[in-house]
Design a protein around this nucleic acid. Structure first.
Lengths: 139, 139
DNA sequence: TCGAGAACGTTAACCGGTAAATGATCTGAT
DNA sequence: ATCAGATCATTTACCGGTTAACGTTCTCGA
């Protein structure tokens, strides 16, 4: 397997495991924090809007929403004007998770980039941005 | 979300989608190619051995193996000495996939790193390696 | 020799993700 | 005013991954 792809996927896996562990300390599972983050940024959006903002399909959001609702972190409420729409609202408990989770993620970010110099870190971000761009531009 | 984690996970997603598309052109699904790659490197190993070499759990391998066997790319054969063991062997069809899939992956690697200079590419690999190491060393 | 414990692969239940099918509601042209 | 088509969220069925439970087979000490 090519060098970069191999290394990147290995890193992904480790990063995913680390993020999962961090988030589980607060009763969340990986992926759920992304949905919550979208709601911390802006409450009361529809599953479709949130899916688009998180780059995930709508069914993924509705399933996560169901679990987060069961856990008491958000609630579904119908849109008053358009009955097709559902709007997701944080509960106080869901809102209270913001700081701990953000701290957790920042700690992880700091830990994994700790052995990089400022320059290395900047170069890494630049390179990943370039790669991202190539992929977004399509084949 | 912190800068690097955000960027890395976005890249992962795009890379995953691109790799999936590439591999699907040959009738495979993402993940199956890793198992096959392990077999191209060395045939006749057990699910447990392969799982360890690919950094995946054993059940993941047995499920993949079932699907790949149904598709005719590998077969399960019992170990002649130890009846607890199963050994996975490539069929000619499975072996024939090696070159096309490897070409596909190399093409993707070349494409995504095309906009990087040699130096940038080397720095990227170095940085990712460092991050990998931090994660392997554990919390 | 034989039986308890270790070492296997598999199965089951779950999770996050996807695509495709479903069903309800809105919209706009006629 | 109506109805065909668009637009939603949800359900279903699948996939790769995980952990935990299960059943079979070896191994090795008493």
């Amino acid at each position: 397997m090519p060098e970069f792809l191999e290394l990147h996927s290995k890193t992904s896996k480790l990063l995913r495991a680390a993020a999962d562990a961090a988030v589980q300390r607060h009763g969340l599972r990986l992926g759920q924090d992304h949905l919550l983050a979208a709601l911390w940024a802006e409450d009361g959006r529809t599953p479709g809007e949130i899916a688009a903002s998180v780059n995930v399909t709508t069914p993924a959001v509705t399933k996560l929403a169901t679990r987060l609702a069961e856990a008491g972190w958000l609630e579904r409420r119908p849109d008053p004007r358009d009955n097709r729409l559902v709007r997701l609202w944080l509960t106080p408990a869901g809102r209270a998770l913001q700081k701990p989770i953000e701290t957790e993620r920042q700690t992880l970010e700091d830990r994994v980039t700790a052995t990089l110099t400022k320059t290395e870190r900047a170069q890494l971000l630049k390179a990943l941005t370039k790669i991202n761009q190539v992929l977004l531009d399509g084949p």
